[in-house]
C-alpha cells in the first residue's frame, strides 16, 4: 500500500503584511485523524498561518498542500469548499444573526443538503446552542460564542478543522469543557489543527505540536516531548528550569 499523503502539508511558507514579515519558511504537516497543536507567544504569527491557509494573506513564498493538492493560490471561498473549516481568532460569529442562522452559514459549502441532521449533531455536542438557537448571537457569553464558532465550522462537515485560540478569555472550567469536546470531535474522524497560547492543555490534548517563534518553527515533537522540553517549560508553561 502506498503511503498516504498528509492531510495538510505546508512547506517553506512566507507571509507578509507590507514590510512586516509574519511567517518565515514555516514547514509543518498534519496527518489524518491527529490533533496537532501550534503554540507560540503573542505576535508569533499563529493566526497569520491559519489565515494564510485560507489565502488571506496570500503567502509570498512556499506551498500549502491539502490531500496532495497545491491550494496555495486558490481564492478563500474555494478553499472552504475543499473540506477545511476554521473557527478563527476572536470567534467572528455574526452578532446580528440568530444562533441558528450562524450555524446555517457554516453549511454554505455543502449547499444546505444535510442541514437538519447536522444541526442535530451540533446541538448534541453543544446543548447550550440548542437552548439559545433563536437568540441573537451577539448576546451569547464568550464561551457560548466559542461553541458557536466551532459548531458553525462543523456544519461544513470538515475533514480538517482549524481552531485559533478557542480558550482565549474563557474561564478554566469552560476551557476544559471545550477541550473535552475537541476530543469528541476528533473521535468522529475530524482532524484538528489547534492554535493555542494555553500550551499545557493544548499539548496534553494533542498528539504532536509545533512551537512558533517570530514567524519561524522553533521546535516540534510529540505532545509529551514538548511538555518535557526545558525551553517549552520555561517559556510557555511558566516553570523555571
Amino acid at each position: 500500500m502506498p503511503e498516504q499523503e498528509p492531510l495538510l502539508d505546508i512547506q517553506q511558507l512566507d507571509a507578509r503584511y507590507g514590510a512586516i514579515q509574519a511567517l518565515r519558511g514555516v514547514s509543518l504537516r498534519v496527518e489524518r485523524g491527529e490533533i496537532v497543536t501550534l503554540i507560540g507567544a503573542n505576535g508569533a504569527g499563529k493566526s497569520t498561518l491559519l489565515m494564510s491557509i485560507f489565502g488571506d494573506p496570500r503567502p509570498s513564498a512556499g506551498h500549502i498542500r491539502y490531500l496532495g493538492r497545491d491550494i496555495t493560490g486558490l481564492p478563500t471561498h474555494a478553499i472552504a469548499k475543499l473540506g477545511i473549516a476554521q473557527a478563527p481568532e476572536g470567534r467572528r460569529i455574526f452578532p446580528a444573526m440568530r444562533v441558528e442562522e450562524n450555524l446555517l452559514m457554516g453549511a454554505t459549502p455543502l449547499g444546505m443538503q444535510h442541514i437538519d441532521t447536522d444541526l442535530i449533531k451540533v446541538f448534541e455536542l453543544f446543548p447550550r446552542l440548542k437552548e439559545r438557537r433563536d437568540q441573537r448571537a451577539g448576546t451569547l457569553s464568550g464561551g457560548e460564542q466559542q461553541m458557536l464558532a466551532i459548531g458553525r465550522a462543523l456544519m461544513s462537515r470538515p475533514q480538517l478543522l482549524l481552531l485559533d485560540e478557542p480558550s482565549l478569555g474563557l474561564a478554566p472550567l469552560v476551557t476544559q469543557r471545550i477541550f473535552a469536546i475537541l476530543g469528541e470531535i476528533r473521535a468522529t474522524g475530524t482532524t484538528i489543527f489547534l492554535v493555542e497560547q494555553n500550551a499545557r492543555q493544548a499539548l496534553k490534548l494533542a498528539q504532536r505540536g509545533y512551537v512558533l517563534v517570530n514567524g519561524a518553527i522553533r521546535l516540534s515533537g510529540s505532545g509529551e516531548e514538548l511538555l518535557a522540553n526545558p525551553e517549552v517549560r520555561q517559556a510557555y508553561l511558566g516553570i523555571r528550569a
Binding site: 485560507f54 488571506d56 481564492p75 478563500t76 471561498h77 472552504a80 469548499k81 473549516a85 476554521q86 478563527p88 467572528r92 455574526f94 452578532p95 446580528a96 444573526m97 452559514m105 457554516g106 454554505t108 459549502p109 458553525r152 461544513s156
Partner: peptide, 12 residues
C-alpha cells in the same frame, strides 16, 4: 457583517 469570515465559510 464580516466579509473575511464570510469568505472563510465558503461564500464568494
Amino acid at each position: 457583517q464580516d466579509r473575511r469570515m464570510a469568505a472563510i465559510l465558503g461564500i464568494d
